[in-house]
Design a protein around this nucleic acid. Structure first.
Length: 278
DNA sequence: AAGCGCCTCAACCGCTGGTAT
DNA sequence: CATACCAGCGGTTGAGGCGCT
């Protein structure tokens, strides 16, 4: 629990600030917030905070609602599809977490940001590469994504592939596929919520830089539908020449790094992806 | 069982841009 | 136009959980 308090801008705020609660939310506070928003709707967070009786800032209420309490917030591990989408969108947009989150229904910017910092950047550290560098993007494409795609195949054909509740999962997969929220993305034909599309689409995409034998097929299945993984950002990819990356370096790092056999978990970690043996 | 270190993620902070007055 | 207020964003923190020794 933090003890320091931010200096507030007015005398009135300072008076109120004495009573403000910080730190983890209690069940009672959650219930109070849910009840208030159910009755009055969300928004106008500062007045909400005052009117609801919560001894929290408007900011804190907003964050708690949007990141945790809101009914359509999806809890649980990110699916392979979501991870793939995050990788691509981050390579395109950088740390625009809220923008990325808009493409992943039910996921929050905070969750995606945490995922990136704890999982993806961890791998960058292992490889001693700046996670914002082209080299790292290339490393992901060469070594991680093929495995991600393979894991997607494995996990989506397995009956126990999801760690999220089926109802939520189905609802979100439907959103994921059929309700793109940003026209720009579709127009730009980079990977997007529409990039996981029906297998009726005959334009199967070849992953750039994928070793020929690393992937039998780019198609995978969600629920009863078959999907293809489509384009990664061609323009970005074309900026990178194979010679920009020392393949041997990464392979060496990979071999050095490997120590465990891949476990057949329903959820798999970044480490497992890297460790996944061809 | 205890101590330690690492990891995760909920929550906080500072800042920015938009809007109201 | 200037100022105040607010919502939202991205970066950072630290409590608690977990695994290892």
């Amino acid at each position: 629990m933090r003890t320091s308090k931010k200096m507030t801008s007015s005398c009135n705020d300072q008076e109120v600030d004495h009573e403000l609660r910080r730190g983890p939310w209690t069940l009672d506070e959650d219930n109070l917030l849910i009840h208030y928003i159910t009755c009055h709707g969300e928004g106008r967070w500062n007045s909400l905070a005052r009117s609801s009786g919560l001894k929290r800032t408007g900011k804190s209420c907003r964050l708690r609602w949007l990141n945790y309490l809101k009914p359509d917030v999806k809890h649980g591990n990110l699916t392979p599809q979501e991870q793939l989408l995050i990788l691509e969108l981050h390579s395109k947009w950088g740390n625009r977490w809220s923008k990325i989150a808009q493409q992943l229904p039910g996921r929050t910017d905070n969750e995606i940001k945490n995922y990136w910092r704890t999982k993806v950047q961890k791998q960058a550290r292992h490889l001693k590469i700046d996670s914002n560098s082209k080299r790292f993007v290339e490393a992901l494409r060469q070594f991680w994504l093929p495995r991600l795609l393979e894991k997607m195949e494995h996990s989506t054909t397995s009956p126990s592939s999801s760690t999220t509740s089926t109802t939520t999962m189905e609802a979100n997969q439907n959103n994921f596929i059929s309700q793109p929220q940003d026209k720009d993305i579709i127009m730009e034909s980079s990977i997007s919520s529409s990039s996981i599309c029906s297998s009726n689409n005959s334009n199967r995409f070849m992953m750039p830089y994928l070793p020929e034998n690393s992937l039998q097929s780019n198609s995978y299945h969600v629920d009863n539908n078959s999907y293809d993984v489509m384009s990664f950002n061609h323009s970005n990819t074309q900026e990178l020449r194979s010679s920009d990356v020392s393949t041997l370096e990464f392979q060496a790092a990979e071999i050095d790094w490997m120590s465990n056999n891949l476990e057949d978990d329903t959820f798999w970690t970044m480490d497992e992806l890297w460790h996944f043996k061809k």
